[in-house]
Simulated scan of single mutants.
Amino acid sequence: MSRHTSTGVSLFTGAGGMDVGFEKAGIKVVFANEIMKEAASTYNANHPSGVMVNDDIHNVLSTLTKFKGADIVFGGPPCQGFSVAGKMDPNDERSKLIFTFLDAVQRIQPRAFVMENVKALGYLEKWNDVRTKYLKKAQSLGYHTVPFILNATEYGVAQKRERVFFIGIRNLYDEKIMRNLLNKEKTLAPSVRVLLSSLGKAGTNKNPHTCTAKITFATQPVMRKSPYAGMYFNGQGRPIDIDGYANTLPASMGGNKTPFFDEEYLYGKAKKDWVVGYHRGLVEGSIVPQFQEAPKRLRRITIKEAARIQTFPNDYIFSGNNGSIYTQIGNAVPCKMAEAVAKAVVKYLNKYDSSKK
């Protein structure tokens, strides 16, 4: 799709979800860096090009000048410091890694960069000072940068996952054109039912059971209007709307924070979603919450299902134990979402960018 193969440097790579998308957009990754051993192993299992360096980014910064002139630097620095789900601590060491990302950009001097992070960093007043500091530093390096908040469901991902993408391009660029290019990449996501039904029930070679955490009822439920929100089961694993989209898959999956659904409803044995009736009973007061195990038809999603919701290729190989794999999947940028962003940026660089390589 591009006039030439663009080159890319991948930072905070994780299992490589963002790389899958960028590669599909015609970008050849020449260097990747990830500190987590299992995630780096996953990357190597799917990208046998030897570009992965499994080390702390601070230890590789000095070597990045050899990639000076690469077209794009991309990555998603750890976001726990900014996450609404976390402590939102500006002094969290992980909060500083967005600036380490720019340190890498300074050394490589690409034509463009794409940094993904949680939505909160893109719009919350609490992070206004950090956001302003980030944009000013990018500007001092010669990059006009705009944060775009995107919803994964609009980019082919059956998951209500909103994220900010800071897109920086050398010299001034037209934000309206970039927005238009991003809009042109939109494609409606399939429902969870359509996405997962071909995998088949859990417990087969194609879709093995990978999470044994029991599902029990909360004795003091926190209710919301939707049956797929609130907390009326143990842990923080939420029910998934089979006919709609999953909530954001968390990196804390693997135990009782793993989302779940009604398997009988998914595969047509039942005509109604069990959790909808249970939720209605709690709201109306006809059901008294008590600690007991939920029906067996409710089960937590498997690794294969989580990977499919994140739009990883079906044959993607994951390394590590099940808990580590769930974490890798939850931490990833959905592949199709990354692909859409990458295609928009490549199109911009090819058609509208006046700066020389």
Results as ranks from 00 to 15, higher is better:
residue 139 Q to M: 11
residue 352 Y to E: 06
residue 98 I to D: 04
residue 164 V to L: 09
residue 224 R to C: 11
residue 25 A to K: 01
residue 23 E to K: 10
residue 247 N to P: 05
residue 308 R to V: 07
residue 24 K to N: 15
residue 334 P to R: 08
residue 36 M to Y: 13
residue 311 T to V: 01
residue 259 P to V: 04
residue 178 M to D: 03
residue 216 T to Y: 13
residue 293 E to S: 07
residue 7 T to Y: 06
residue 125 E to A: 11
residue 88 M to P: 03
residue 153 T to I: 14
residue 201 K to I: 12
residue 326 Y to V: 04
residue 62 S to W: 13
residue 192 V to H: 09
residue 313 P to C: 04
residue 352 Y to C: 04
residue 339 E to L: 07
residue 327 T to E: 14
residue 215 I to E: 03
residue 203 G to V: 08
residue 216 T to I: 14
residue 71 D to T: 02
residue 350 N to V: 05
residue 221 P to E: 00
residue 115 M to I: 05
residue 337 M to R: 02
residue 268 G to F: 00
residue 29 V to F: 00
residue 82 F to L: 03
residue 283 V to L: 11
residue 186 K to T: 14
residue 21 G to I: 03
residue 334 P to F: 01
residue 199 L to A: 01
residue 185 E to A: 08
residue 318 F to A: 06
residue 295 P to L: 02
residue 48 P to E: 02
residue 317 I to T: 11
residue 64 L to W: 06
residue 127 W to G: 03
residue 122 G to N: 08
residue 128 N to H: 13
residue 304 K to Y: 08
residue 202 A to I: 11
residue 158 A to S: 15
residue 26 G to E: 00
residue 302 T to N: 10
residue 357 K to Y: 09
residue 128 N to R: 15
residue 182 L to W: 04
residue 325 I to W: 10
residue 329 I to R: 04
residue 51 V to G: 05
residue 132 T to R: 14
residue 16 G to R: 06
residue 130 V to F: 08
residue 93 E to K: 13
residue 95 S to L: 04
residue 90 P to A: 07
residue 343 K to V: 06
residue 70 A to L: 12
residue 348 Y to R: 09
residue 271 K to F: 10
residue 128 N to T: 12
residue 327 T to F: 12
residue 304 K to G: 01
residue 329 I to K: 00
residue 41 S to M: 12
residue 314 N to W: 06
residue 313 P to S: 08
residue 312 F to M: 03
residue 94 R to C: 04
residue 293 E to F: 09
residue 337 M to K: 02
residue 198 S to D: 15
residue 323 G to Y: 10
residue 331 N to G: 01
residue 144 H to D: 15
residue 5 T to A: 14
residue 289 P to W: 01
residue 132 T to A: 13
residue 200 G to R: 05
residue 178 M to R: 06
residue 10 S to E: 14
residue 298 L to K: 06
residue 191 S to Q: 12
residue 316 Y to V: 00
residue 23 E to Q: 13
residue 8 G to P: 07
residue 285 G to K: 04
residue 103 D to K: 06
residue 27 I to V: 14
residue 8 G to F: 05
residue 160 K to T: 14
residue 37 K to G: 03
residue 66 K to H: 12
residue 176 K to E: 14
residue 168 G to S: 00
residue 99 F to Q: 00
residue 353 D to T: 04
residue 223 M to N: 10
residue 240 I to L: 10
residue 176 K to Y: 09
residue 268 G to D: 05
residue 281 G to C: 00
residue 225 K to G: 12
residue 339 E to N: 07
residue 67 F to G: 01
residue 79 C to T: 01
residue 333 V to S: 02
residue 46 N to F: 03
residue 321 N to F: 11
residue 61 L to M: 13
residue 344 A to G: 05
residue 64 L to H: 02
residue 45 A to W: 01
residue 321 N to W: 11
residue 168 G to C: 08
residue 271 K to Q: 14
residue 304 K to D: 05
residue 59 N to D: 15
residue 289 P to T: 05
residue 153 T to L: 07
residue 302 T to M: 03
residue 253 M to V: 03
